[in-house]
Deep mutational scan, measured.
Amino acid sequence: TEDEKKIQELLKRANGDVSKAEKLAQSQGNEELARRLREYANK
């Protein structure tokens, strides 16, 4: 999905570090994506 692409892109930029990727999403003002990242990471 589009969200998964965004999540994978963020994870790439954060070198696979979920908490960093989450902070990136939040810094972009994207709380929804940050929440999805957390769920994605907890799979």
Rank of each mutant, 00 (worst) to 15 (best):
Q8H: 11
T1W: 14
G29D: 04
A41E: 08
E22V: 15
R13Y: 11
K23T: 07
S19F: 08
A25G: 00
E2D: 13
E32L: 06
N42Q: 13
S19L: 12
E22D: 02
L10N: 02
E22W: 04
A34L: 08
K5F: 11
N42H: 06
L37H: 00
R35S: 07
N30L: 15
L24I: 12
K6S: 11
N30S: 07
K5T: 08
A14V: 09
E31P: 11
R35K: 13
A34F: 02
Q26K: 12
L24Y: 07
R36Q: 12
K23W: 11
L37Q: 00
A14Q: 02
L33Y: 03
A25K: 00
K23I: 10
L11N: 02
L10H: 04
S19E: 13
Q28N: 07
S27R: 07
E9R: 02
N15L: 09
G16T: 01
I7Y: 05
G16F: 09
A41W: 14
E32C: 07
E22L: 12
E2S: 11
E9S: 04
R38G: 04
R36N: 05
K6H: 09
E22K: 03
E31H: 14
K43C: 11
K5M: 12
R38W: 03
K12D: 13
A34N: 01
A21T: 00
R13T: 11
R35A: 11
K23S: 08
R35D: 05
L10D: 02
K12S: 10
L24D: 06
E32G: 07
Q28L: 13
E4F: 13
L37E: 01
D3H: 09
E32V: 05
N42S: 13
K12T: 10
E2L: 12
A25L: 10
S27E: 15
R38K: 08
K6V: 13
A25M: 03
E9H: 03
E31L: 12
I7S: 01
N42M: 10
L24M: 13
T1F: 13
A41G: 09
R35C: 10
L24V: 05
E22N: 02
E32D: 11
I7C: 09
N30G: 15
R13N: 11
Q8Y: 10
G29V: 03
N15Y: 07
A41F: 13
D17A: 01
Q28W: 09
A21L: 05
D17I: 05
A25S: 01
G29T: 02
K12N: 12
K5C: 15
L33C: 05
Y40C: 11
E39C: 06
E39L: 02
K43D: 13
D17L: 03
D3G: 07
Q8P: 02
R38Q: 06
E39H: 03
K12H: 11
L11F: 00
E31T: 09
Y40E: 07
A21Q: 00
A34Q: 03
A41S: 07
K20M: 13
N15P: 00
G16S: 03
R35E: 07
A14L: 06
E9Q: 05
I7D: 01
K23D: 06
A34M: 06
S19D: 14
E31G: 08
G29C: 05
E22A: 14
S27F: 08
K12E: 14
E22P: 00
K20R: 11
Y40A: 07
K12V: 11
K23A: 13
G16E: 03
E32Q: 07
E2M: 11
Q28T: 10
D17P: 00
A25V: 03
N15T: 03
E9T: 02
T1P: 12
L33N: 01
L33S: 01
A25Y: 00
N15D: 11
K43Q: 14
E22M: 13
T1K: 11
E4Y: 14
L10C: 08
E31C: 13
K43A: 14
N30D: 15
E39Y: 02
D17W: 04
E39P: 00
L37Y: 00
N15V: 04
K6C: 15
E39S: 03
K12P: 03
Q8D: 08
E22R: 05
Q28G: 06
K43L: 13
S19V: 12
A21H: 00
E39M: 03
A21G: 02
K6W: 13
R36F: 04
A14E: 03
E2F: 12
L33F: 04
D3T: 12
V18K: 03
A41Q: 10
R13K: 14
K6D: 14
K5Q: 11
A25F: 02
A14D: 00
D3K: 05
N15A: 09
A14R: 00
I7K: 01
R13C: 15
G16W: 12
E22H: 06
K23F: 09
S27D: 14
K5I: 10
K5P: 06
S19W: 07
K23G: 06
D3N: 10
N42C: 13
Q28I: 11
A41H: 10
I7Q: 01
A21W: 01
Y40H: 09
A21N: 00
R35Q: 10
I7G: 00
R36D: 04
N30R: 06
A34H: 01
E4C: 15
R36S: 06
E4L: 14
I7V: 06
E4I: 14
Q8T: 10
V18F: 14
E4R: 09
T1C: 15
K43N: 13
A41Y: 13
E2N: 10
E39Q: 05
K20A: 13
G29M: 04
A34W: 02
L33R: 00
V18Y: 14
L33T: 03
L11V: 07
N42F: 06
E2C: 15
S27H: 08
N15M: 08
N42V: 08
E22Y: 06
A41D: 07
E32I: 06
Q8R: 14
G29K: 03
K6Y: 12
E32T: 06
D17Q: 03
R38C: 11
E32A: 07
E9M: 04
A25N: 00
K20V: 15
G29W: 04
L10P: 00
K23L: 10
Q28P: 02
N42W: 05
R36L: 15
E32W: 07
A25Q: 02
